[in-house]
């Protein structure tokens, strides 16, 4: 059974203007996203900035309320639960944030930060909790005596380890990692990624890993969902996706990723124009304004995400019908 399932998830942010705050438009940040994650699996969400990938992550935890669609945690529908009822499910899904500076309260000690979720859910005594916190520190590669220090005394990588320890505190089944390494130095990125992968192996965690960095995604992902303007355009196993991208947007995205060999050249597919506004997404296929292969059908008919005829992975493109 999947640990996290979302179906037709939508988030439309209203744009309000004027004295009466009338809604004059809607930003369709997420517009019909569906996927599921199995235990122990890493599903990566990739895409350009503004494509709604982070919003999907926050919707999954209900940090933002979805406009439409459903979220199931461990098979249980949580989309319409009240705040109090939701609390019981919060411990199964936790989050690691992008900014290791802003996501730790600068006024609290490291031990308090990591221990806060424990405090919220367990009746254990102070010393028992302290032991658990010390174990969490060790699990993420920090010395337990760092509990008494303040966030500013840690480096960026160490701070992100604190964030991971906090996410692990409740033994969740899924962790939503919202660009957890994009704010870190490249040398530290690898350490944190490897930590995440080790923890996955040890604890059987599932990750919803949001990233714009294809190199990172290739390293950590099992399956990859490519997002464009609030929708998933392609969802495939990592190897298949990198070896043979089917959607023209995925092809362009992969061709833009730098190769580690300075002499290597690959054919770049350079997309023309900018990403259209999510307030007024294009008709038909949302990618048709920039797609080098678009034809008349793309302008009028929206392609559905369906198994492609070649190998059964999910692609939303008329070319693959």
């Amino acid at each position: 059974m999947p640990v996290l399932e979302v179906e037709n998830l939508k988030k439309h942010f209203p744009v309000q203007r004027g004295l009466l705050r009338r809604t004059v438009a809607k930003v369709k940040a997420v517009d019909g996203v569906s996927f599921s994650i199995r235990p122990g699996e890493t599903l990566c969400l990739v895409g350009e900035s503004g494509c709604g990938k982070s919003t999907v992550g926050k919707l999954a935890l209900r940090l933002i309320e979805p406009t439409e669609g459903s979220i199931r945690i461990g098979g249980e529908e949580v989309t319409r639960l009240s705040g109090g009822e939701m609390r019981a499910y919060r411990r199964r899904i936790q989050m690691v944030f992008q900014d290791p500076y802003a996501s730790l309260n600068p006024r609290l000690k490291a031990g308090q930060i990591v221990g806060e979720p424990l405090e919220n859910y367990s009746d254990a005594s102070g010393s028992e909790q302290e032991q658990t916190i010390a174990a969490l520190f060790e699990k993420v590669g920090l010395r337990p005596d760092a509990m008494r220090r303040y966030p500013f005394e840690f480096s960026g990588g160490q701070r992100q380890r604190l964030g991971i320890a906090r996410a692990l505190a409740l033994n969740p089944a899924v962790i939503v990692a919202d660009e957890p390494v994009s704010a870190l130095d490249v040398s530290v990125q690898a350490q944190v990624l490897n930590l995440l992968m080790d923890l996955q192996e040890e604890l059987g965690l599932a990750y919803l890993f949001v990233s714009h960095d294809l190199g990172v995604v290739e390293h950590i992902g099992h399956r990859i969902a490519v997002m464009y303007l609030g929708q998933i355009v392609e969802l495939a196993d990592k190897d298949a996706l990198f070896a043979d991208p089917q959607h023209p947007y995925t092809q362009a995205l992969i061709s833009a990723a730098p190769l580690p060999d300075p002499r290597a050249r690959r054919e770049r597919i350079v997309l023309e124009g900018d990403v259209p506004s999510p307030m007024r997404p294009p008709s038909g296929c949302r990618f048709h304004t920039r797609c080098p292969f678009s034809f008349d059908r793309c302008f009028v008919e929206e392609p559905r995400l369906k198994p492609s005829r070649e190998d059964g992975r999910l692609v939303a493109c008329h070319l693959r019908d």
Partner: peptide
Amino acid sequence: EAPYVEAAIAGGTPVWK
């Protein structure tokens, strides 16, 4: 709106806290 407040919500921290 600070991320550490979001983190607290995600960690199940009650509103008064």
